[in-house]
Design a binder for these strands. Structure first.
Lengths: 199, 199
DNA sequence: CCTTTCACATACCAACGGTATGTTGAGTTG
DNA sequence: CAACTCAACATACCGTTGGTATGTGAAAGG
């Protein structure tokens, strides 16, 4: 299994990664409040001393896990958008990528449910802004500047769409029905399309 | 102050109400995880025995508080809608009432932030459905049936709009700027109006 | 009155997050 | 290469937490 070989830096990295992986799994299964540090360190095969050597406490550990999840979601959104050239398609592809990515159980629980409660909404919002939400507002701003979007301030619209997609992802994760994704997607598409400037 | 007069039923009701009021205040100020039962019972002037006589535990107490908050928000939404006769105005008035009501600190923290994390999203969603979200979907369904709304399934649209308004309320509560409410409201109005059937 | 029952108060427990200190081996230095 | 340093943990412990089991005094019932 995980031998205690390697340099000190390797051991440090491996321990930290194991802690992150196991806590992410347990947070997903039982929620932040439903899992104790004892359970986490037991699953990782270390002790609380190791955990507190790497993280400042339980909230800091959760924050590190959340940042990891948000980086992955942000990368998925950005990747889907960059695969397109048309600005409007970049927006829609990014939104669809966010919807599918956020339906995963760990994203759902860690990012959408427990995140705001553990860190407080303001901190959660700041993290969300720096990862995936930023792409949405930038995309909308570009569309507004080139006149493709109906003229309006983009910041409020970005908030509304972000909230709409968050809620939709939570709903989709619970339904498990593939048809629901298409229903939500057409509804969201209608909302997006309605903000496109009529030629 | 609160004398121990009255019949046994009156004492019971008074104790329960005090417990609900104080826990609601403390949950709002420090969040669910940030306040202990000791603090709650001290503020209410009773002991843990009284609390456990009225509620099954800390999550059950929070659930009772949440249901109270949701009833108030639902009543505000329904009241604003029923003050109008035109179906479309009922929708917009209800949405605006939800936005303003959900900006209050207790609604924000208890209903929007801690609610899903404490009860789990499925239970939270069931409570939300039975209070304010139901009005939204019913209003949309009525508009769809009478042909005022662009033909589409209303359930996904209701979910998207509900999430959008939740997020908007969270943002508005943090900004404190009165202009932001108007910005968000015009953005939301544009989204709603775009789903109105063009004559 | 006397008894029962309700509405709590008191005392207590296991588990929790967090800390203080001990230990070991890799990396550095003379 | 031997002595030393210090990072990377392990171990033991503490105060507090949510939860429970039991005691108690006043109101309701006969």
């Amino acid at each position: 299994m995980s031998e205690e070989t390697g340099s000190r830096a390797e051991q440090r990295a491996r321990t930290r990664r194991t802690l992150l992986d196991q806590s992410r799994r347990l947070f997903t299964e039982h929620g932040y409040g439903g899992v104790g540090l004892a359970e986490i360190v037991a699953a990782a095969g270390v002790t609380k001393g190791a955990l507190y050597h790497h993280f400042d406490g339980k909230p800091a550990l959760f924050r590190a896990v959340l940042e990891q999840v948000q980086r992955e979601v942000g990368a998925a959104v950005a990747g889907a958008a960059e695969a397109r050239t048309d600005p409007w398609e970049q927006l829609t592809a990014g939104c669809r990528a966010f919807l599918t990515a956020s339906t995963a159980p760990d994203v759902r629980r860690i990012m959408l449910v427990d995140g705001p409660a553990v860190l407080g909404w303001n901190q959660w919002r700041a993290l969300d802004e720096s990862s995936s939400a930023r792409h949405l507002e930038e995309s909308l701003a570009a569309l507004a500047e080139s006149g493709i979007l109906r003229p309006q301030p983009v910041a409020p619209l970005a908030r509304l769409l972000s909230g709409a997609m968050n809620e939709a992802a939570l709903w989709l994760a619970g339904s498990g029905d593939g048809q629901d994704l298409e229903d939500v997607w057409s509804a969201l598409s209608r909302l997006l399309e309605s903000q496109r400037r009529s030629e």
